[in-house]
């Protein structure tokens, strides 16, 4: 059985996630329609698009939280929709998910939040966990904050703790849902640079959902623009940025004039 195989290492540029004709509906609303794309290992792929176009739904398919109505989705050689709970559990150890608002346990301190996946998914000793937590907190630029309560942190710091928790298990793929939404321009740049740094230093694959267009130009290798459940454009950063499509121009020009309805 495929799932018994070891998870192999992926070279940079090799497709690590392949999506074929993925479709998903909720009631009469078709959220994803015939989605096709390859996400390459060792790169940052950013998915843009207006709210309600299925970006989060897509990410939830990758981690197996939702099952598609039709189509295939392969992550690290595993056909996700066909996996059982046990196999999904194994796969998810290789995926780190950082949520929009951090989704931290606010009754726990930073240490307990970041060590949560370690104490639940591994047999590491307390001492090892402690040094791993210190290591990932250092990576996201928050060394020595272990004993702080998450409520004492600013929004930007909370997002970084969320990212540290996603990195704790040393995943191959890091999925980041709206890393910079609601942050000011300076904090946005900090987070963008952090993602760039982690990609280059650790060679991780980042799949990011974002509304922040400038941030995307700064950090993405590959950009996908989702609109009405399909990929309007999927290509290299520079190509997408200069694309002539009127939908893209409206989105990148942040204006109400154009085919897309604002409100």
């Amino acid at each position: 059985m495929a799932s018994k195989e070891e998870f192999r290492k992926y070279e940079t540029g090799e497709p690590i996630v392949t999506v074929r004709n993925l479709s998903k509906s909720f009631g009469s609303l078709r959220v994803l329609k015939d989605l096709n794309c390859d996400i390459k290992a060792g790169e940052t792929t950013v998915f843009l698009g207006p709210s309600g176009t299925g970006k989060s739904v897509f990410i939830k398919h990758i981690v197996g939280l939702l099952k598609p109505d039709e189509g295939e989705l392969e992550v690290m050689g595993r056909n996700v929709p066909t996996l059982g709970e046990r196999e999904l559990y194994e796969l998810r150890k290789h995926l780190g998910l950082a949520f929009q608002l951090g989704a931290l346990f606010d009754s726990l301190n930073v240490y307990d939040n970041v060590s949560f996946p370690l104490s639940h998914h591994t047999r590491m000793r307390q001492k090892e966990i402690k040094s791993r937590v210190a290591e990932v907190l250092e990576l996201v630029g928050l060394p020595g904050t272990e004993n702080k309560l998450t409520t004492e942190l600013s929004t930007g710091q909370q997002k970084r703790v969320g990212l540290a928790r996603a990195l704790a298990l040393n995943p191959t793929i890091v999925l980041f849902d709206e890393p910079t939404t609601g942050l000011d321009p300076i904090l946005c740049t900090t987070i963008d640079e952090l993602i760039l740094k982690l990609k280059t230093e650790l060679g991780k694959t980042f799949i990011v959902i974002s509304h922040d267009i400038e941030g995307t130009w700064n950090m993405a290798d590959q950009v996908g623009v989702l609109y009405q459940g399909t990929l309007l454009r999927y290509g290299r950063n520079a190509d997408v940025r200069r694309d002539d499509n009127i939908f893209l121009k409206q989105f990148f020009g942040r204006t109400e004039d154009g085919p897309m309805i604002g409100v």
């Binding site: 009127i246 020009g253 942040r254 204006t255 004039d257």
Partner: peptide, 23 residues
Amino acid sequence: EFLPQILAYQEELASWEGEKVDD
């Protein structure tokens, strides 16, 4: 860095008169 592109697109689309797509 990105303002010129944004302004150029906004100017270009200001005279846009096509139909809106209802999603």
